[in-house]
Computed example of a mutant assay.
Amino acid sequence: MGDSGDVIAELTSDHREVEELFSQFEGTPPDSEERKRLADEITIELVRHAVAEEEHLYPAVREHLEGGGVLADREIAGHERVEQLLKELEGRESGDLEFNRLMVKLRTEVTAHVRDEENDLFPRLREGVHSFILESLGRKVREAKKSAPTRPRPSAPSTPPAIKLLAPGLGLVDRTRDFLTGRGQGRP
């Protein structure tokens, strides 16, 4: 995904990439291998993005924004809904009617989450947090995505310190499993 800039630019770049993957998904025929591959790509990107936000962005939101605890909790609840949908998708074939229903639900949930972040959270961060901190968070988020898990785990912890301790190990397991199965090949 993104490779430079502050946390807002980084996460906005992630949002555009996932939107593009959803568009590609919608342009593929039902029951195609390409559709399943794109669903896997969407899952990988959403999980990596969510873990990086939970490790670094939301703790900063709690610390630096008035009412940040409530805001962070709301965003994490959105992540939990997305992760549950991703978990339900796991292992389903692209021709399965439930697969298609879940993908529509997933896109709806992700679109609402992105809109909320970009229209509410990001402007509040831009206004209330020093640019140095936003730049530092951007670097931390980029680094976190490199070692983040790639598979959904709705019951895993979503707040530090547990997520910071568990995510790299789970990420290694996931990337090994992805390599062995060919899932997400061609991605960083």
Rank of each mutant, 00 (worst) to 15 (best):
L11I: 08
A52E: 03
G91C: 05
I44C: 03
E41N: 11
S131P: 12
L65E: 02
L125Y: 01
R48V: 13
E83V: 07
T12Q: 13
V82Y: 01
L86W: 09
E26D: 04
G91F: 07
Q84L: 12
A9K: 14
R35F: 15
D73W: 03
T150S: 08
S136C: 04
D116R: 06
L97I: 12
E33L: 15
G95V: 12
D14C: 15
K36Y: 15
L97V: 12
K140C: 03
E90P: 06
E33K: 01
E17D: 14
A112N: 04
L57N: 00
E10N: 13
E143P: 14
T108S: 10
I8K: 08
Q24N: 11
H64C: 05
L46G: 03
D73I: 01
L11H: 03
G69A: 05
S13D: 14
P30G: 11
L134A: 03
V70Y: 12
E83C: 07
L137N: 06
H113T: 02
E90F: 11
H113N: 01
P123V: 12
G27H: 05
R139M: 06
T28Y: 11
H130A: 10
G91R: 06
L89A: 05
A52W: 09
Y58G: 00
V7N: 09
E80K: 10
G69F: 03
R126H: 07
A52N: 02
